[in-house]
């Protein structure tokens, strides 16, 4: 570059502008993340909380205990159930509603968009309270409707087989509008000429969808897939409000386990190990998604 040396005043101003935010992020995010990593190799518990002298470094003991614990594997299994069933379901419904809303025959488009998006902005604790009531075995509306269809009442939140599906249904309801909006943006970016030339080549609606819409949406899919997965891995408030992790621990998620271990039993070292396992899983899952997308594109 030929530009003369940067004026000192400007550089100083630049640091002045960046410093407050950067300092906060470093001190209250980067440092705690590093500290959590160290914490996971210690036996920090309620005694150490009272007096740091009780703190001992225990190496990999927390991770070993974790891998040997049934509760941990249960939480991993539940979380994957939630991510692998709820995630695709949510993305599928988002794409479906986005496609429907793109249709030229739709009237009141913005009304529908608002209705579908409204649950996204709601407070998760509040809607969990509402859904807990919807799921009530005796007075809940869901069983009332099922009754009309000739189906016996289901103990949604009290039956280990149904509690997670019930939480998934609610999470999908709450979240699909978000991805729908992103899909709508992606669909609007597909040039009309592509569809026209496909039509000229004699492609029907289904072929147009398969050969034009889906490939053109690939970047949107990567983004939506990543964001959804990251959000779904952090499941916490729904089981906290609706099931307390039960029945029979069928809705204990990884974050719920971390919360209980860390802030209920004060096993902070152990909980930090749980948090890092979650981080590692999310990192690997993110890399896998990127890789899948690459092979798809080629």
């Amino acid at each position: 570059m030929n530009t003369p040396a940067l004026p000192i005043g400007t550089v100083r101003a630049a640091w002045f502008f960046v410093a407050p935010a950067l300092l906060l992020i470093v001190v209250f995010f980067f440092v705690p993340v590093l500290a959590a990593f160290c914490l996971s190799f210690t036996d920090f518990d309620i005694y150490a909380l009272a007096n740091p002298d009780h703190l001992r470094v225990v190496g990999l003991k927390n991770y070993q205990e974790l891998l040997a614990s049934d509760d941990f594997w249960k939480a991993i299994g539940n979380t994957f159930y939630f991510v692998l069933v709820g995630g695709p379901l949510s993305v599928g419904i988002s794409l479906g509603t986005a496609l429907l809303l793109q249709s030229k025959v739709v009237r009141f488009k913005s009304f529908f968009r608002t209705v579908f998006f409204a649950p996204v902005v709601t407070t998760i604790v509040a809607v969990a309270v509402v859904w807990r009531y919807l799921y009530h075995t005796k007075y809940g509306f869901l069983n009332y409707i099922l009754h009309f269809l000739g189906i016996n009442p289901v103990d949604w939140l009290g039956d280990p087989a149904w509690a997670m599906p019930a939480i998934i249904l609610m999470a999908v309801w709450k979240g699909f509008g978000y991805n729908m909006v992103i899909f709508i943006a992606g669909l609007q970016n597909i040039p009309d000429e592509l569809y026209e030339s496909a039509r000229i080549d004699g492609a029907g609606a289904w072929q147009q969808f398969w050969h034009v819409t889906l490939p053109m949406l690939a970047p949107t899919f990567l983004f939506v897939g990543l964001m959804t997965m990251i959000g779904y891995f952090q499941l916490f408030a729904e089981p906290y409000v609706m099931t307390l992790g039960g029945p029979l621990q069928s809705t204990v998620s990884i974050v719920y386990l971390m919360y209980e271990q860390g802030f209920k039993w004060w096993n902070l070292g152990y909980a930090a190990a749980v948090a890092f396992v979650l981080f590692a899983i999310m990192l690997v899952a993110t890399l896998i998604q990127f890789r899948l997308q690459k092979t798809d594109a080629s």
């Binding site: 995010f29 705690p32 993340v33 990251i230 891995f233 948090a275 890092f276 979650l278 981080f279 999310m282």
Partner: peptide, 10 residues
């Protein structure tokens, strides 16, 4: 990519 929960304990 780091989930916020990782930082919460420290």
């Amino acid at each position: 990519v780091i989930p916020a929960q990782v930082a919460m304990l420290p």
